[in-house]
Design a protein around this nucleic acid. Sequence first.
DNA 1: GAGTGGTCTAGACCACTGT
DNA 2: CAGTGGTCTAGACCACTCC
Lengths: 262, 262
Amino acid sequence: MVAKYERIAQELRSKIDNGELPPGSQLPVEQELRVTYRVSLPVVRQALDLLAAEGLVDRKHGRGTYVRHPRQRVRRTPERYQWEKDRVRLPEQQRQRTGATERDTGLTMADLDFKAEFDTVAANDDLATAFSLPIGAKLLRRIYRTQSHVEHSPLSLITSYLVYDIVAENSALLDARNEPWPGGTQHQLYTIGIELDRIVDRIITRPPTIEETEALDLSSGVPIFDLRKISIDTDGRVVEISDAILPGDRTEFVYTTKLTRW
Amino acid sequence: MVAKYERIAQELRSKIDNGELPPGSQLPVEQELRVTYRVSLPVVRQALDLLAAEGLVDRKHGRGTYVRHPRQRVRRTPERYQWEKDRVRLPEQQRQRTGATERDTGLTMADLDFKAEFDTVAANDDLATAFSLPIGAKLLRRIYRTQSHVEHSPLSLITSYLVYDIVAENSALLDARNEPWPGGTQHQLYTIGIELDRIVDRIITRPPTIEETEALDLSSGVPIFDLRKISIDTDGRVVEISDAILPGDRTEFVYTTKLTRW
DNA sequence: GAGTGGTCTAGACCACTGT
DNA sequence: CAGTGGTCTAGACCACTCC
């Protein structure tokens, strides 16, 4: 026995697949579907909610239900890390020109709404393990919100952790008003004599929390990427951990693995 | 004005967060919540459905609603590619010992339910572009389902594409009955004189389709990873494209980027 | 103001799970 | 068989969007 709402969803799904309902087009309104399929309103709504959870349609209050456009994904590759490192030792004027976010998005600083907040926190179990520090160790936490006023651009929520005692050596690094810092974190670390040896990316996916949904303006059903970036210096020390929340429908990761020749 | 179902969800959410409702514990049944919050049943259900979509609880028909356990994630790293390549030129007996899946999961072939189906398809726009071939080019499509009878292990759905005219040189490669092939795809390619130079991983995330939900036994709200692996040989030719669907709650990717020294 | 989706009520009956 | 979640009805009223 297939449920009615499943059957309705199935029929709409195939109309979307075969192009009868192309991206951007409006689905029949709830009342109309109620009549066509001879069901009560909640059943129609259940079918549409299901399609929304699958990412096929967008429900817009007061306007209608629309077939979702496939999103253009912004590609993220680890080449950015080497690019950042190469910029560190350039003169400030050149470093200032553009940051990594602008490089990724193609937007200029004027289009971006940049916010940074700093505070200190005690390392929890998770962070302490990652840093190889005792639980409770003092960390500088930096929270970045990059928003854009122009549409269709990727946003992100980034939380970065640094070991407080290490970065306190340069007090300018403790003040959020110095952000955005020309040359980014790698240059900040450079000011206290730290050179990065490698960066480890760990990628997971999950449904967003309510806050993430709002901050990233996610449609219902869209999952998020949670990227943890671990920066390790030339002494093998973990010097920064950065957690980025990225919209799952606007992001793709590309990593190339070179194999040794026979 | 906060909706009632939102308020109920919020209250249950905090009880889960603060440990009052630990992982594995059962939530109050719908009827009980209906009384406690003085709302109708659909409202309670809406709240619980929301928590399920967020991945916080599992709804089990006929049994109750339970706080979900955080899943142990299986780590996927690109080191497996080099490992596979190194195995290619070992004697068959050693290659036979274990495959990549077993290496990843720690399970032996006896625990795994392995299925392979081969057919040929015409390259669509997407595949033709990736292979740098004309649309309609003949491809060998290989579909693998790896399931496990023991619990808590990762499953995957893999679709692999090879250029038909290239692999037809060794007719053994066209027959699904030769799977699982000791040494995997890299060894199969080796039999026709192909050596891989590099592998490009492209990772996206999205909600699962109905079929994927069933095949991977996903709880509601769990997104999936879609990993496209592009294998490029020493002549710079794309020789294999493999699309893997992986459960989002049981998978993590780890990639290390080595930076050049100053 | 008209059209649309969002929330909610107060029930009824069915399907699955475990004893 | 009892307990639980799954589906469905037939309404009512509210909130948002756009003209």
